[in-house]
Write a protein that binds this DNA or RNA. Structure first.
Length: 490
RNA sequence: GGCGGCGUAGCCAAGUGGCUAAGGCAGUGGUCUGCAAAACCAUUAUUCAUCGGUUCGACUCCGAUCGCCGCCUCCA
């Protein structure tokens, strides 16, 4: 089976064929470091984290590069506002970014280059483009000549004529063609500057990715990724720069993920409708955010709402309850005299888990389908658990425990089910308990009183206690070994 | 205006032309229970925005229409 990936360049799903067999080289556009990250950034980081984990699970070696844009207009403006240097501002938000990434359990990429540490690599490419007649200096700026690259527009499906017709680009007297874009900006007083053959200045936005990807992954590599909003102009311009300078294809496969929306509108700083990662993580467990993110295919829009987060919570708790129940099975308890209670259909269903998971994920990383398979498996496991006799066959217990381990192993690719089931549920219980107006001692006392009442068949008082606790969002569960309680979400 | 995408049950969401249109949430009936809860079982789309076309066969391909969203300016 091969992994098929949707390629923005061709508009089709294509089989993954790394240029170097078995080794995938991946470059992802990272953040501009001037503010806290919102959940749109989280989706990007999570999507590529999942992709890298899946490729590694499928035995590919992966070299994963993700950059930091640490010099740019927004950084300069924000630094001025906050009365610090652009460098200080950038470093501060890189640190904050790592705080969020660590909380989300996202692995670090192999290489995380910063734009400001690769100025020479950028000026090299700019010089090459000038030598080839594909760029020109105008004043203290250097521009790319879009007309020199006949394939300009091939990624975004545009042509220069159409773009000029609907041009919203501000007129710049220096440019020969309004579509030409800046490679190097002459510096204004007070701005960070670097020396260059064209005078002091700083790089344009697009050139950093051309320069850093070439340095770390070569002139041609397998996958380049980012948000859909980067298709034009950012990635289109990268192609023009890199293919122009190198005279070789730049990237085989372009992966672009969809946006996080709120009430079906793109979450963005300019609309002011964004929620930061730390906003969300102060209310929800990181795995709940991950479960939510992966409930929709990565290319589709993902609409954030409290309801959707509640659904994700319910779903993840359901899976955790299942694996907690399996891990609490005691292998030594079985004395082996009973027969297997697992019928062939259920056995096959559980055995098919990993194969079905791979089939879903091979098809353009279909995590939504993969989650469906998890639920389907959990349902089967729960059914078997229900039918398990007091002294189950040890082989049955082993079979179930293996199924639980497989769920955890596959869940780890999406970054879920990483905790022990009982630990996750207990922690959650404690957190929810802290939010409501009752303590554990009181609950235990009432439960004990109710136990006595039930023994005396005093159902009136027994129900009264249950209702009283339910008012505080405490749900009771009477089992053969006594009464358990849990905190209900209000 | 140009380009791209989406429209599948009350809600969310898979579906790589052909086997019963996954799965989750919510709902309903049942098993269990003193009654509940959880879990399990059953049930919930003769139909995939609409209308045409291609095909032996279409949710899936093509065209048109309607609606929504995104990009074309910084953006994940």
């Amino acid at each position: 089976m091969t992994i098929r990936i949707y390629n923005t360049l061709s508009g089709k799903r294509e089989a993954l064929k790394p240029l170097e067999p078995g080794h995938v080289k991946l470059y992802v556009c990272g953040i501009t470091t001037y503010d806290y990250c919102h959940i749109g950034h989280a989706r990007s980081a999570l999507a590529f984290d999942m992709i890298v984990r899946y490729l590694r699970y499928r035995d590919y070696k992966v070299t994963y590069v993700r950059n930091f844009t640490d010099i740019d207009d927004k950084i300069i403006v924000r630094a001025k506002e906050q009365k610090c240097s652009p460098e200080e501002l950038a470093n501060r938000f890189i640190d904050e970014f790592y705080v969020d990434m660590d909380k989300l359990g996202i692995d670090r990429p192999d290489i995380e280059p910063k734009a400001t540490e690769h100025i020479t690599e950028m000026t090299d490419i700019i010089s090459e483009l000038i030598d080839k007649g594909m760029a020109y200096q105008a004043g203290n700026d250097v521009y790319y000549i879009v007309d020199s690259f006949p394939e300009y527009g091939k990624l975004s499906g545009r042509n220069l004529e159409d773009m000029k017709a609907g041009a919203r680009i501000s007129v710049n007297e220096q440019k020969r063609n309004p579509m030409d874009f800046v490679l190097w900006k002459g510096s204004k007083p007070g701005e960070p500057t670097w020396e260059s053959p064209w005078g002091p200045g700083r790089p344009g936005w697009h050139i950093e990715c051309s320069a850093m990807s070439r340095k770390y992954l070569g002139e041609t590599f397998d996958i380049h990724g980012g948000g859909k909003d980067l298709i034009f102009p950012h990635h289109e311009n990268e192609i023009a720069q890199s293919e122009g300078a190198n005279g070789k294809p730049f990237v085989t496969t372009w992966i672009h993920h969809g946006f996080v929306t709120i009430r079906d509108e793109k979450m963005s700083k300019s609309l002011g409708n964004f929620l930061t990662i730390r906003d969300i993580l102060s209310h929800y467990h990181p795995e709940i955010l991950r479960f939510f993110v992966f409930s929709t295919h990565y290319r589709n829009p993902l609409d954030f709402s409290e309801t959707a987060m509640q659904d994700a919570t319910t779903g993840l708790v359901r899976l955790y309850k299942c694996i907690a129940a399996v891990s609490s099975l005691n292998l030594a308890a079985g004395v082996g005299q009973s027969q297997s209670v697992i019928d062939d259909k259920d056995r096959l269903n559980i055995k098919a888990l990993e194969g079905r998971f791979q089939q879903a994920m091979d098809n353009d990383f279909n995590t939504a389908q993969a989650q469906g398979i998890f639920f389907d498996t959990a349902k089967t496991i729960n059914r078997i658990l229900k039918n398990l006799p007091a002294t189950p066959l040890p082989a049955d217990i082993t079979f179930l425990k293996d199924a639980g381990s497989t769920l955890k192993k596959l869940g780890d690719i999406m970054g879920i089910l990483r905790e022990e089931g009982t630990h996750f549920l207990d922690t959650r219980k404690q957190q929810m308990l802290a939010e409501i107006d009752i303590d554990e001692t009181t609950i235990d006392a009432l439960v004990a009183e109710r136990f006595q009442c039930r023994a005396e068949k005093n159902w009136a008082r027994s129900d009264e206690i249950r209702d009283q606790l339910l008012e505080k969002n405490i749900e009771l569960k009477d089992g053969p070994d006594g009464t358990e309680w849990s905190v209900k979400r209000s």
